[in-house]
Structures are given as structure tokens and as C-alpha cells.
Design a protein around this nucleic acid. Structure first.
Ligand SMILES: [Mn+2]
Ligand SMILES: [Mn+2]
Ligand SMILES: [Zn+2]
Ligand SMILES: [Zn+2]
Lengths: 149, 149
DNA sequence: CAGAACAATGCAAAAGCTTCTCATTTTCTT
DNA sequence: AAGAAAATGAGAAGCTTTTGCATTGTTCTG
């Protein structure tokens, strides 16, 4: 299996949980999932992998460069498969939709700003928050969902 | 007192804790402090204000536009007095030093990108992470110590 | 292919930050 | 000064994430 090789390549042992988690991330490579998401999706697929293991594996995958972790607002992290090319995010504060983008001008300016200020930049986090114009977005129907129901 | 007016102006009752917290934020207006920082600094100054109150007041001040909350990496929030003009941050991952900057080019690009993607932008979070070249920074002496203790 | 060495897992407990509950105190308005 | 409404403090609770430890699984060697 392709996943086995990827896992071995980064110096990790090939175990059931690691393979299943990598497969899931590949299957949902257009989403940004939390550890809890991964845990639950695997449960629903019949894979009983402990939440602690999900956290551990995601962190290992991140260290290995296989996945990226983002800290959008909300107090928890979301993960996605690394796709080589760097990108930033726009998040709809109403429906949670996430759109990705890259902008060379912004990237260049960031580098310049870091240098001007005597910093050697490692990475950066840029996230735009707003409301999307998706007709499906509950924000359009005026029905801001409240947790009362 | 000037603080009393500011607090009243935003529709909050003038109470000891609110005045003391606002005074402290004004005194340390060149820093980015956590709720815990505020709590401890007040304690050391002889003001026994509960941590829960510090959190509540900071959140109220934020809603009122008096302070801004930032979620740098590390899982906790830091606060600073609002100074009208928007700015972003560079954080040294070694010593925790924070430098502020603004860049019109980046701001414009963000707006354009949001529109291109059908988003109405509320706000954004841009933080650069790297190592500073400050000779005082422990990173220079090889002794990596975490600023949060 | 068995066996040993070592790493990974699951569960529960704990951590770390933040919010909530509720009895008590304080503010602000008559 | 008194009452209504809001704020506070202390601790409990909530949430996401990490950790300890006994158990299980993987890999390597022979
Ligand atoms: Mn992404
Ligand atoms: Mn700032
Ligand atoms: Zn939306
Ligand atoms: Zn530094």
C-alpha cells in the first residue's frame, strides 16, 4: 500500500491507526478536520482508534511534514494533508466554510517586513474571517443558528 | 478619573476591578498580556481581583472595543489596548518578543482576495513567527528557554 | 518463523486555559 | 437611604489536548 511507504519513509512504524488516519486524510483532502472529527469519522467507519492516538498520530504526521495544523478561532486545531504548496485561508464565521488562497504579493511583503524588523521568519499564519455569499450559508436566510433548540 | 469616563462611555458600570484592569492595560500599553498576566500583576500590586473577573472584564472590554484579543500560538489569548489603528504582529518563537507592523499592500490584497472569493471580510489574523536578532534573545546564546514558564 | 527489543496503543487521569454557577457584595437609581 | 439590577469571587465545570502506564503490536535477528 502507498500509505505504508509514506509512513515508513518518514521514519514511523506502519501501524493500523497510522494507516487508517492517513487514508482518511487522503479521502477528505478537501477538508480541514479536527482530531475529534478524525476520531469520530473513523468510529463511524468501524475503526476503533483511541482519541489519544489520533492526537499523537496527527502530531507525528505534522512533525514529519505529512500534515499541516492550523489554529483557526475556536480553540481547537484543524489538520489537512500537506500539499507542498503553501496557502492561507478564508473562513466564514457563519457556516464555517473554508476557502484557500495564495498571494505572492502578500508573501513577498511578509518576508520584507520580517527583514526590516530583524527577524528570520520561520512561518506565518494568515486567516481572513468574514461571511461568505454562498446561498446555502445560514447567514443568508437571517436564521443565525442558536444553540437553544 | 479618565478611566471612569471610558468605562461609562461604553455602557459598563464603573467598578473597582474594571478601573484597575483598565489602568493596568494603560500602564503596560506596549505589551501583550494574558488574562493570567493581568491577574498576577494586579495581585502583586495588592489588588485581589478574581481570575474569573479578569476574564469577564477583558471579554467585556473587547466587546466594547476597548481592547483587542489575539490568539498567538500556545493556546491562550493575549490582550492589548485598542489604539484605533489596525496592526499585525511578528512573534519571536524563542524569546516571545512581539513586534507590531502595518502594511497597506497586504491589507489591500486581503480585501481584494476576499472579494474575489465572494466573502465579506470582518477581520483577519496575520502573525509572522520567527527568530529575532536581538542579542538579548536566548536563542543567540543557545539556551532555549520558553517564555511562558 | 520464533523471540527479543522496543515502540505504539487505549484508557483513564490530568493538564491548561477559559467559562459558568451561585451566594454575596457593589453600583446606580429613586 | 433603600431597592433593583448588575458585578464579583471562589470554586466547579467544560473543552481540547497531553500524559502515565499496562498491554499489545511491529520490526529485526537468528
Ligand atoms: Mn488549507
Ligand atoms: Mn499588538
Ligand atoms: Zn458561510
Ligand atoms: Zn527572540
Amino acid at each position: 500500500m502507498a500509505e505504508d511507504q509514506e509512513i515508513r519513509k518518514v521514519g514511523l512504524k506502519v501501524t493500523g491507526p497510522r494507516v487508517k488516519i492517513l487514508e482518511l486524510l487522503e479521502k477528505y483532502d478537501d477538508r480541514h478536520v479536527s482530531a475529534e472529527d478524525v476520531y469520530r469519522m473513523l468510529l463511524e467507519a468501524g475503526e476503533e482508534i483511541g482519541l489519544a492516538t489520533v492526537y499523537r498520530v496527527l502530531t507525528q504526521f505534522e512533525s514529519a511534514g505529512l500534515v499541516e495544523r492550523h489554529n483557526f478561532e475556536g480553540g481547537y486545531s484543524v489538520f489537512e494533508l500537506s500539499r507542498g504548496q503553501h496557502h492561507d485561508h478564508i473562513v466564514c464565521i457563519v457556516c464555517g466554510k473554508v476557502v484557500e488562497f495564495t498571494d505572492d504579493t502578500i508573501e513577498e511583503r511578509q518576508q520584507a517586513i520580517a527583514e526590516e524588523n530583524g527577524f528570520e521568519i520561520g512561518d506565518h499564519s494568515l486567516t481572513l474571517y468574514g461571511r461568505c455569499r454562498d446561498p446555502e450559508c445560514p447567514g443568508k436566510q437571517g436564521a443565525i443558528t442558536t444553540p437553544s433548540g
